[in-house]
């Protein structure tokens, strides 16, 4: 049985009368890499700040190893945070920044020194001890921020969009490094990001949030392949979302055709969202296609071409390694298992 280290129950947060979190329930499993993913304003950072102790809830409670820590001030919690813009102390050098938490805990100088050294090694910053914060590049400051938190050996590390300020290449490198650190130290990471790719690459569990509500919790593969609703489908990767009607189990009508699908359990004739990934639409000669359409634009994206195709009143996004000329008529086929049926979002809210 997996051990739940942090549990958030019925969390509600208001800002100026606006509900930022609408009754969130979230269990974090120990030693996992958990990502809170969503667009800005979805409540992911607020959730993180509740766990860190910087945000009070209007109602709800927070448990750490089954102990209620709702009212515990931040400095008494066994979690540490890597802040969005690092929040390094500008008046202290790198060594003193990292040693800060240990000095507050009044550890012996010897202990502090060895732990700081260890951590510097972990984040590849040996030799930077005496440097000032201002003399470091963004990537290096990032490492210091991580080291400053990790040196305290927290049970849980909270990371608030820590790679947001870095350029793409550096970000990719740090993603791998962070994942390695997490596995090496065997502690829980709770990671906030709006970058779906980042979430999918690094996480054991992804929590997709929108509008102060958790939309879906699952492994990256689950989230990608079995999005629970159109929001998740749209937010995670590209999707075509089309109105459909569920005729009966395993049969759905959309775009003027009936398709066999693998979903069941909907009401008869229920209006549904049909989600199809752009890479799941196969281009075939016009006569062989179940749907036909006109190519409106083609963009070369490196690995594939991305085409916008007009068919039965919808704009379809298709990714394919084949190139079609603008204006040409094509046929399109979709495999039953690539058709994802979702309840309409309005019904859920």
């Amino acid at each position: 049985m997996e051990n739940i280290i942090i549990s958030l129950k019925n969390a509600i947060v208001d800002f100026d009368g606006e509900q930022i979190l609408k009754n969130i329930n979230l269990d974090i499993i120990d030693k996992q890499f958990v990502t809170l993913l969503g667009p800005s304003g979805c409540g992911k950072t607020t959730t993180l700040r509740i766990i860190g102790g910087f945000q009070q809830m209007k109602s709800g409670s927070l448990y750490f190893n089954n102990k209620d820590i709702t009212k515990l001030p931040p400095h008494k919690r066994q979690v540490n945070t890597v802040f969005q813009k690092y929040a390094l102390f500008p008046h202290l050098n790198i060594y003193d920044n990292i040693a800060f938490g240990l000095k507050i805990k009044r550890l012996s100088d010897k202990e502090i020194k060895s732990r700081v050294q260890q951590t510097l090694e972990l984040v590849n910053l040996i030799g930077f001890e005496k440097r000032s914060v201002q003399s470091l590049s963004g990537g290096q400051q990032q490492r210091v921020a991580i080291a400053r938190a990790l040196v305290n050996r927290p049970k849980v590390l909270l990371l608030d969009e820590p790679l947001g300020a870095l350029d793409l290449k550096l970000r990719k490198g740090m993603q791998i490094e962070l994942k390695n650190i997490q596995q090496e130290l065997e502690i829980t990471f709770i990671y906030v990001t709006h970058d779906q790719e980042e979430a999918l690459t690094m996480s054991d569990t992804v929590v997709v949030m929108n509008d102060g509500i958790i939309q879906q919790i699952g492994t990256p593969i689950d989230i990608y392949n079995e999005p629970k609703n159109a929001f998740v489908a749209d937010f995670i990767g590209d999707s075509n979302i089309i109105d459909g009607i569920m005729r009966k189990d395993f049969l759905v009508d959309f775009a003027g055709n009936s398709f066999t699908c693998v979903d069941s359990g909907f009401e008869k004739d229920e209006l549904v969202d049909v989600v199809i990934r752009p890479e799941d639409i196969k281009i075939v000669p016009q006569a062989q296609g179940k749907l036909t359409g006109v190519v409106e634009s083609v963009i070369f994206k490196g690995v594939h071409y991305e085409m916008m195709v007009e068919s039965s009143g919808y704009e379809w996004k298709i990714q394919s390694t084949l190139h079609e000329n603008v204006g040409s008529l094509i046929g399109m086929n979709i495999e039953p298992m690539d058709i994802h049926i979702m309840h309409k979002m309005e019904d859920k809210l």
Binding site: G52, H75, F83, F89
Partner: peptide
């Protein structure tokens, strides 16, 4: 956030 970082580190 610098103040919060200090709190986070036990201040």
């Amino acid at each position: 956030s610098v103040v919060e970082a200090a709190q986070d580190l036990g201040c």
